[in-house]
Design a protein around this nucleic acid. Structure first.
Length: 311
DNA sequence: ATGGACACCTGTGGGC
DNA sequence: TGCCCACAGGTGTCCA
């Protein structure tokens, strides 16, 4: 479920507490939540306990915690899948339903905290992974000898990425995101525009909700060929995507059920700003035509049949 | 390169 | 009340 704004809401909630914290314990209640970890449960615990967390970093929908380690830089990598949550609780806080992994830590200020990974569908995961230089390292980018070369406030994290996420492109809220390059690549795609927006190797962070919203705002049909867009139209679409992601981050993300919560278990309120997604049958805020839902790529696509005609 | 189908999962809500 | 089906913010892989 979570897309960039939801993951960013989680990241910004974790960072003040976990940056600089030291892991004191790990409890794995659901082994399938570690399916992307290369080793077994014991290995996962051994790699975490006693380690210091240096920062909380996000690209697209991936989130990771670089760990202090000698030699090769490593990180705890998390993905929320369709239903993941990362909650911060005091140890005495009532158990949360569907908790899969609990990581106990001591923060820089000496407080005990529990990081609870909650995930109904178990599409999300936690894993330890190597950090490698990102393909398009920005100005001044370099590969460090080890994480020890970094501190929690460093901006350099933008040039490292977990090996397992190396194929994920920068997202529109990344300082080193290049609109020009993405527009260029987008217009060479011989595919439908929504498929291109959801291609995490072209730009990351956009999922089904924000794709539908950006297409609605730009009056584009989901199956419009990406290569048919003028440079200006492609630019306008990318602007829509960026603005929508920004506003949604400010709103704390979109929550329409129990599946998305911030680190305190609270809902975001971007739902009130949705124009197309989940609005099947309700009037298009622009022209009043009922919003339609089409089955598309094993999921749903919501659009205004009048404003968003296929050309 | 593209896209479709499917696998990975649990839970909820609607219709009957 | 129960049962069955559709549906849900994602990703990855295999196969035409």
């Amino acid at each position: 479920m979570p897309e960039l704004p939801e993951v960013e809401t989680v990241r910004s909630g974790l960072a003040p507490v976990l940056a600089g914290a030291t892991v004191t314990g790990v409890e794995v209640l659901e082994p399938r939540s570690l399916k992307r970890h290369p080793g077994d449960i014991t290995d996962f615990k051994n790699q975490l306990v006693g380690r210091q967390i240096l920062a909380v970093v996000r690209r697209g929908k991936f989130l990771w915690l670089p760990l202090a380690a000698e030699g090769t830089p490593i990180a705890l990598v998390g993905h929320l899948g369709m239903s993941g949550q990362m909650l911060l609780r005091t140890p005495d806080f009532a158990p949360d339903k569907l908790t899969r992994v609990i990581i106990s830590a001591r923060s820089l200020s000496g407080e005990s905290v529990e990081f609870r990974f909650v995930d109904q569908r178990i599409f999300g995961s936690l894993a330890i992974d190597l950090l490698v230089p990102t393909m398009d390292a920005g100005p001044g980018g370099f590969a460090p000898e080890s994480n020890a070369a970094f501190d929690a406030r460093s901006q350099q994290w933008s040039n490292l990425i977990p090996q397992s996420a190396a194929h994920i492109a920068r997202d529109p809220l990344d300082d080193n995101f290049s609109s020009r390059t993405v527009i260029e690549r987008l217009r060479k795609k011989n595919t439908g525009i929504k498929r291109a927006l959801l291609d995490q190797g072209l730009l990351s962070g956009v999922g089904n909700i924000y794709a539908d919203e950006a297409l609605w705002r730009s009056r584009l049909h989901y199956d419009q060929q990406a290569s048919s867009l003028s440079k200006a139209k492609a630019g306008e679409l990318l602007e829509s995507v960026t603005e929508i992601l920004r506003s949604a981050v400010l709103a704390g993300g979109t929550s329409f059920d129990e599946q998305y919560k911030n680190v305190n278990g609270e809902s975001g309120y971007f739902e009130v700003s949705l124009n197309a997604y989940g609005m099947t049958g309700r009037p298009c805020p622009r022209c009043g035509t009922p919003i339609k839902r089409d089955s598309w790529a094993n999921r749903g696509s919501h659009f205004c049949p009048l404003c968003q005609k296929l050309r």
